[in-house]
């Protein structure tokens, strides 16, 4: 299962994408510690697999929580390395910005 959590504002759509199939086979779960805002948690999904999710509380505030990492000095484009995506050894985590 691929999950897309995100928001929309005047400049477009932004999403965090988590590929559950890639995430479930990885045992590192480094994203949880890597995120300075505590956006991620490991939870059992509806099909009994343990995967990273964006926590319920964070889903409503992604715009705000992710802005310190992604927004500094105008953001960075695809080359910009975010703590969470850099920490994920499975390549399961992507940001659309």
């Amino acid at each position: 299962m691929i999950a897309n959590y995100g928001y929309e504002d005047g400049s477009g759509f932004y999403y965090i994408t988590i590929d559950g199939d890639l995430c479930a086979v990885c045992s590192h779960r480094r994203c949880v510690e890597a995120c300075p805002q505590g956006v991620y948690a490991i939870e059992m999904d509806d099909y009994d697999e343990f995967v990273a999710v964006v926590t319920e509380a964070a889903r409503k505030r992604l715009r705000e929580l992710c802005s310190p990492c992604k927004g500094q000095n105008g953001g960075g484009g695809p080359q910009h390395r975010l703590p969470c995506t850099s920490a994920c050894p499975a390549g399961a985590l992507r940001h659309s910005w």
Partner: peptide, 12 residues
């Protein structure tokens, strides 16, 4: 303030 800070952070 959280919302507004997002706008501000976009420009640094």
């Amino acid at each position: 303030a959280g919302r507004v800070s997002t706008v501000v952070r976009r420009i640094g």
